[in-house]
Structures are given as C-alpha cells and as structure tokens.
Computed example of a mutant assay.
Amino acid sequence: MNGKIVLISMSRRSILSLGLGAAVLPASLASGTQGPRLEVWKDATCGCCDGWVKHMKAAGFEATVHDVTDLQAVKAAHGVPDALQSCHTAVVDGYVVEGHVPAADVRRLLAERPRAKGLSAPGMPPSSPGMDIPGTPYEVVLFGAPGGDRVWARH
C-alpha cells in the first residue's frame, strides 16, 4: 500500500512539474531566448522599426539590431528589389525579411522553407506590426523564387 501511495504522489508531482514547465516555456519563448535569431538593419530614429522588432521578440524571435545610415547598401547586398523595399531589412535563417512582415508569416516561411530569397511587406502598410494603425489591408510577398514573386499572405 505504501508503494502505491508513493507512486501516486510521484505521479502527481510529475504532473505538477510538467504543468509548471509548460507555464514557463511560453515566457521563455516570449523573451526571445528560444526562438530563431533575427538580424535587423534599420535607421536609428525609426520608431516603427523598433515596434516591429518588439513584435518579433514578443513572438519568440531573438533580435540583433544594427542602426545604420545607409540602408540602401544593406538592401542591395541582400537582393531586395526596389519595388519591394520598406524601412528596414532583416535576415533570419538565410531568408531576407523586408519591412513589417508579421511574425506568423516568418514562422510559416521557416516551417515551409520555399526556394526563395525572402518575404516583403512593401512600403509601410499602416496596419502592419510596428505601424499598428488598423483597417488597411496589405499583402506580404514571397520574392526571389524560381517561379517569380507571389503573394504569400493577405492581411
């Protein structure tokens, strides 16, 4: 009988430990310590870029930010077409992320791993993460794919 009580007690303890571990896991992901590493180039004075970085960190990405004065050189070096440019450029796991692309779209990109250069939210869509002015639909474009650029997501 004592063996059963200890066994039940351990079982409850194990379940409790698993529950506490699950509760702690999202907090560690939100801090960016467990997620994909994102490298971002932006202008030092751009508040909307800071907002996008915060959005990505909240979604579990780890971000290293470089404030630069010549973003055009960064965009050219990463092959971002003129028509798809925005206010900041990032790289994650070999993909380019141009502008205010939502974290969910980047996660999908990393999960599906299409043959492409990356994603872009061209311009500065008002309702995109970091801009945060609701009500304006926008598209995220997959670019540099063998079959050409295409819409990746609509928001």
Score class of each variant (00 low, 15 high):
1 M>S: 15
2 N>P: 03
2 N>E: 14
3 G>A: 15
6 V>I: 15
7 L>G: 13
9 S>G: 15
11 S>Q: 13
11 S>V: 14
12 R>N: 11
12 R>T: 15
14 S>W: 14
17 S>G: 11
18 L>V: 13
19 G>Y: 12
20 L>M: 13
21 G>K: 04
22 A>Q: 11
23 A>N: 06
26 P>S: 10
27 A>N: 08
31 S>E: 15
31 S>T: 15
32 G>V: 12
38 L>N: 05
42 K>V: 09
43 D>M: 13
45 T>R: 10
46 C>K: 04
48 C>K: 09
51 G>D: 12
51 G>R: 11
54 K>F: 11
56 M>Q: 11
56 M>W: 08
58 A>W: 10
59 A>K: 10
60 G>I: 10
61 F>A: 06
63 A>M: 09
63 A>E: 05
65 V>K: 05
66 H>E: 07
66 H>R: 11
68 V>Q: 03
69 T>D: 10
69 T>S: 11
70 D>G: 00
70 D>T: 00
74 V>C: 11
75 K>N: 06
76 A>E: 14
77 A>E: 14
81 P>D: 07
85 Q>S: 12
87 C>I: 05
87 C>K: 03
88 H>E: 03
92 V>Y: 09
92 V>A: 08
100 H>I: 08
101 V>N: 04
103 A>F: 05
104 A>I: 08
105 D>T: 01
107 R>I: 04
108 R>P: 04
109 L>S: 04
109 L>Q: 03
111 A>L: 09
112 E>Q: 13
113 R>S: 02
113 R>N: 01
114 P>K: 05
115 R>W: 00
116 A>L: 06
120 S>E: 01
122 P>H: 07
123 G>I: 01
127 S>M: 00
131 M>V: 02
131 M>L: 01
139 E>A: 11
142 L>K: 03
142 L>C: 02
143 F>P: 00
143 F>E: 01
145 A>K: 05
145 A>N: 05
146 P>Q: 07
149 D>F: 00
151 V>P: 01
151 V>Y: 03
152 W>Y: 10
153 A>C: 07
